[in-house]
Amino acid sequence: MKWSFNFLRVSADDQRIENLKGLSLFKRLTARELRELDELLHQRSYQKDEVIFDEGDTGLGLFIVLSGRVKIVSSHAALQHLAPEFGPGDCFGELALFEEEQRTARAVALEPTQVLALFRTEFVSLLERDRGIGVKILFELSRMVVWRSRKLLANQPHLPTV
């Protein structure tokens, strides 16, 4: 019985690593790097209409949508008309990974939603001990931020940086 339980647990771990590999932010990471990263990720479940973070909150980490949908609402003029939505695989709140400043928008779950959270100080400690992982994640994050900034500048209603 004990063996079968362990087998199931290892299997669940491997499945989770496989799921992480499918996320664009972590697509460059090896299985070993994903296992190290997995130790830092926190999975949370939100109900429909539940606030994930609010405008004015101190930003402490990045969120990645695993399932469900998240809507971003802001009182800032530049973001007000955009009201983007995020689905599985998308990430939001990424600026909190770089600085501990106030959130510029509110994130609300539009349906029952599961997200992964990566906390800034844990990410920084990962960068300090394994720069290889840090470079890969930061590279993907930079690409995403650049892409969203371009969209924002072009005034197109798609995925602004929040």
Partner: peptide
């Protein structure tokens, strides 16, 4: 230790989740 910490954090309501992470850190 890390799994135990994650389990403890999982039991915290969503509203206090980020602050709890900050506290643990």
């Amino acid at each position: 230790g890390n799994r135990f910490k994650k389990h403890m954090i999982r039991s915290v309501p969503n509203a206090f989740f980020e602050k709890t992470l900050l506290l643990f850190d």
